[in-house]
Amino acid sequence: MEKRAIYGGLALPLLLLTPQLLVTLVFFYWPASQAVWQSFLLQDAFGLSTRFIGLENYRELLSSPGYYRTIGTTALFSTLVTVLSLSIALVLAVQADKSIRGAGIYRTLLIWPYAVAPAVAGVLWLFMFQPSLGVLARGLRSLGVDWNPLLNGDHALALVVMAATWKQISYNFLFFLAGLQSIPRAVIEAAAIDGASPTRRFWTITLPLLSPTAFFLLVVNIVYAFFDTFGIIDAMTSGGPSKATETLVYKVFFDGRLGGDLGGSAAQSVILMVIVIALTAVQFRYIERKVAY
């Protein structure tokens, strides 16, 4: 889609584009290309010399059991966060969509956690579940659970999943609600007149019509769980205990820190880039299709 009435000239549009393109080149393209280049290099322990080693960094990465463990953790973490936050949000959105009194107030009361920083959300949940002083940790202990996220990897993972889910519910709720409200009432009323029960109407009409929203949210939630949860993990567990909560992004950060293993870290970055590109492509294919309807 293009405008019919268009200005000419070259200097002015380039001038208008300069700030954006400059920032993009210096802070996006150059570093990204550096990441790709570094992934083919080996740097010695003192950072004094580098040499080209081809795909050696990738080979080493893909043959290390630790990397597969991190992939496993990331997959489990993302699946749990996505499934939990999507289903809780859907339940809430369906209720808020019913024409009930106070729907606007409920919406306000349900969307604010979106604004809480991931790291701060982590701190809030840490406070509740801190083994020696947390209020809910005490509750768990009195129920006979030997709760200790500082030592038990499963407990730590449960903790970061809870905090990450808590923060994402608002976002999903908002989009589900918008999706539900865009379903024409007439369709649902027609089904009701034909005698379809509310449950049946939900499964055969509402849910299929909501599937584009759900699919969109699925991709967004995976991206969220992969990238935006860094602050939660760093504030709560720092990837521990013994790497039980280390996701792919956290590993890039950890391995490259203090010039540790820049080549390996860069190779991981490149793999992550490929994942983002794939996810973005999926998302845009979906949007193209939606426009075509």
């Binding site: 268009i6 200005y7 000419g8 000239g9 070259l10 002015l12 549009p13 380039l14 584009l17 954006q20 393109l21 993009t24 996006f28 393209y29 570093p31 990204a32 550096q34 990441a35 570094q38 990238f227 860094f230 992004v249 890039v252 950060f253 490259g256 820049l262 870290s265 860069a266 970055s269 490149v270 992550l272 880039m273 983002v276 590109i277 973005t280």
Partner: peptide, 26 residues
């Protein structure tokens, strides 16, 4: 504006969507 590098500039900006800071940290 209609100028030679219009689409190139647009795509250059567009592709940054795929380069979040997390993948090019160091």
């Amino acid at each position: 504006f209609k100028f030679p590098f219009r689409m190139a500039a647009f795509w250059m900006i567009f592709i940054t969507l795929m380069l979040p800071v997390e993948v090019r940290i160091y």
